[in-house]
Amino acid sequence: MTDDILIEAKHLWKRFGDKVAVEDVSLQIRAGEVYGLMGPDGAGKSTVIRLLCGAYAQDEGEVFLSGRRLTSEPDNARANLGYLSQRFSLYSDLTVLENLRFFAEVRGISGEDWRQRAQETLEFVDMAEFSNRKAGALSGGMKQKLGLAAAMIHQPEILLLDEPSSGVDPVTRQAFWRLLVRLLQGGVAALLSTPYMDEAMRCNRVGFMSEGRILLEGEPQDLTKYLEGRLLRVRGESIRAIARIAREIPSVESVQPFGDRIHLRIAAGTERQVIKEVQKAVDNAGLHATSIRSASPDLEDVFVDLLEQ
């Protein structure tokens, strides 16, 4: 079944001069699904989002929004699109309601319709009581929510969100996710970019981007599977000295520091043997490991592993 695919990218390429910013990126996102694009700054996440909303023109490939080809029917394709850019700017000397009126008018919501729509949207994002506050006087979290409200004033079925919760506190992120889950239940398809691994875990599917390409894609729970049974967590005094020793052990593939502990990546099925080897090497060096045991991998482990390859 393909008719509920709301966001589709086919083999997108984008170059800036001789730099390839987006390399052969394809995506399919269905109604009710949130897709998380992860990757470091400069990986191409924002460029993909700008290609999807038509702010940039691709060099090759095609974009379909709600089944409509963006290049051949740009207005129809974008009619159902809400886009929240990373550095979204509101009019700080306008009130919350005036800002929404502006975005409603841009979206062609006519006459008196805008007021009811704005009211509903503000209630949805839990900001109704701030209608008459100047946008410039809102906290960071509330600006974020107003940005989302502006992006969804026309009740789009597609949301493109560029790092929507970057730098906001966990309380605000929680509120944001509750809103998003409600929208998804109503059939919206969303794509968001995020630098937070735990946020990516909340997506139905995630794609890891690096240097313009999607290196790996899938459901978060599935992506970590190949590292299952291949991670050890070591704690102890002088953990950095222990890390140096661990790097010398041939059966240890890589060592990752985590502050007061380290993660060791090992080959599948070698857990018991490697634990013994590490224990012995640490003891021989006159150091003390307080615990060496298997750890369950998370998306960050997967990401680091991918970037090392």
Partner: peptide, 20 residues
């Protein structure tokens, strides 16, 4: 802020080296 997870871990490794 904004660097990839691998670089973040390496950076924290440096922080700990300095702290030590």
């Amino acid at each position: 802020s904004g660097v990839d997870p691998g670089a973040r871990r390496d950076f924290w490794d440096l922080i700990y080296e300095l702290a030590e």
